[in-house]
C-alpha cells in the first residue's frame, strides 16, 4: 500500500540520518538524543514488518529505560570531547577495518536471507514444522513469541535470564558499600516508639534549665 511505502521510506531515512548524527554530533547529550530517535524509528520499522510486540518492547526497554540511563550518565559526566578526538587519526585504520568487517557480514546475511526467503531463514525450525508448540498458525504477535519462547527455546530463555541475574547481582556487589555511622530513617522504630521511650518528664528549677537532653528519643 502506498501509505506503508511512504511510512517505510520516511522512517528508514530518519533512522539513517539519526544514526549518522549519533557519531557526528559534537555534544554527547545530542548524540544520545539522536540515538533515541534512531531507536524510535527502528521501532516504527518493526511495526511496518508486523512485529508490533517487538516494536513496543524496543520502545519500553531501550528507549524508555536504557536510553534514559544513558542520558542520565552522559548528562552528569563532564566529558571533554576535544581531548578524546586527538587520537582520531591514529585509531582511524582500526575503525575502518571494523566497519568494513561489519558491512561485509551484513551484506552476506542480507543476500543469504534474500536468496533463501526471509521466513525460512528467520523462523528456523518453525518454518519446517518441527516445533513442539505448533506456532505459526494465525495468532497475535505476543502469543506467537510466547509459544516459541516458553516451549522450544525455554532453556535458552532461562539461561538468558540467569545471565542477566548474575550481571545484576554483580553490579550490586561492585557498588554496594556499607558506610558506618550513617544515620538512616528506620520507619519501624518510629512507628513502634511509645511515650515511655520517647518522652521524659522534667521539672526544671528556675535558672537551671533541664541539663543535657540525653536519654530523650533514643
Amino acid at each position: 500500500m502506498a501509505l506503508q511505502a511512504i511510512a517505510f521510506y520516511l522512517m528508514a531515512a530518519i533512522t539513517l540520518v539519526a544514526g549518522f548524527c549519533v557519531v557526528s554530533a559534537r555534544n554527547p547529550v545530542h548524540s544520545v538524543l539522536w540515538l533515541i530517535l534512531a531507536f524510535f524509528s527502528a521501532a516504527g520499522l518493526f511495526v511496518l514488518l508486523g512485529a508490533e510486540f517487538l516494536a513496543m518492547l524496543l520502545v519500553v526497554v531501550y528507549v524508555g529505560a536504557v536510553a534514559v540511563l544513558f542520558l542520565f550518565v552522559v548528562m552528569m559526566l563532564d566529558v571533554d570531547f576535544a581531548s578524546l578526538r586527538q587520537g582520531f587519526a591514529r585509531y582511524m585504520p582500526v575503525g575502518l577495518l571494523v566497519a568494513a568487517v561489519l558491512a561485509v557480514e551484513m551484506i552476506l546475511v542480507s543476500t543469504t536471507v534474500a536468496t533463501r526467503g526471509a521466513a525460512k531463514a528467520s523462523l528456523g525450525p518453525m518454518a519446517s514444522g518441527t516445533l513442539a508448540s505448533g506456532a505459526g498458525v494465525s495468532v497475535t504477535n505476543a502469543e506467537a513469541i510466547g509459544r516459541v519462547l516458553y516451549t522450544d527455546y525455554v532453556y535458552f530463555f532461562q539461561a538468558a535470564g540467569m545471565v542477566l541475574l548474575v550481571a545484576m547481582i554483580g553490579a550490586i556487589v561492585l557498588t554496594l558499600r556499607h558506610k558506618p555511622g550513617v544515620k538512616r530513617q528506620v520507619i519501624m522504630n518510629q512507628v513502634l516508639r511509645t511515650p515511655a521511650t520517647g518522652m521524659r518528664m522534667v521539672n526544671p528549677r528556675s535558672g537551671e534549665g533541664i541539663g543535657s537532653g540525653e536519654g530523650i528519643g533514643e
Binding site: 508490533e52 510486540f53 513496543m56 518492547l57 520502545v59 519500553v60 528507549v63 524508555g64 497475535t140 504477535n141 505476543a142
Partner: peptide, 9 residues
C-alpha cells in the same frame, strides 16, 4: 493488539 504496551511505552 498491543495497546497496553503502547500506553506503557
Amino acid at each position: 493488539n498491543v495497546g497496553v504496551l503502547y500506553l506503557f511505552a
